[in-house]
Amino acid sequence: MSAAGELDDVECRELSRLAKKSLRKSYMSSTKTQTGAAPAQACWNCNAVAGGGHFCAACGKIQPLADGADYFAFFGLPQKLKIDEAGLEQRFHQLSWKLHPDNFVKASEFERNLALERSSELNDAYRTLREPVLRVEYLLLREGVRKEGTTKQQAPPELLEEVFELNESLDELRTARNDGGDLSGLRVRLGEAQKNFQEKLEEIDAELLHVFSEWDKSVDAGADDNERRKQMAKLNEVLNRRSYIRNLVRNVAQELEA
């Protein structure tokens, strides 16, 4: 049939699953912090200023996460979108080793629980920040710029038109395949369309990196809320366009392989 949907919910939504999951976590309060850094807190054990890290600088005990701490703060990073990925990975390994529940078998229940919780958060935080697209989606979800059900369609009309037409060709290919018809012409057409959309995807990824830098600059400059909103709207707009194109590239690839 022409309403060519899949009854199953698909993979693309997986992309934002992690970020959304993290938002539901109770420790993620909606407090906004300009830098993503947690404010200094007193250590529960020795009362020294714990420094906002995972462990107290004075006595070394594991600390609860500060209110408003986000994944960036988790790794001691500012809320910037360009990340040194090798450094992040290294920090991840260090932390997973330090936070490993095995290190806490003799500790109090309070500390054991902190370590357990923190270890699983660590994995989510790492998996989210590691991928540029998940990273920016996370930032926008957390700042309330991206929300389920409330976003108005923002893709440019010409893009929607192209997306729709390509979907129609995909549909034709499926029908022709089922009827045992001649597929060669259609395949050539789709192959070309795929190349075209693949190029578009690369262009848009470059554009995304560019808006990442713009965002980072405004973080460095301590931009006001207005400016931040403007930048986030731009990030959101690029992400939306990317999402259409990525879906298409994937669908076409699937059909051509089928």
């Binding site: 976003t151 369609q153 923002q154 729709f164 979907n167 999402s243």
Partner: peptide, 9 residues
Amino acid sequence: VGAPECGDV
């Protein structure tokens, strides 16, 4: 129209 969340049209 399209839904940016999922890329559907």
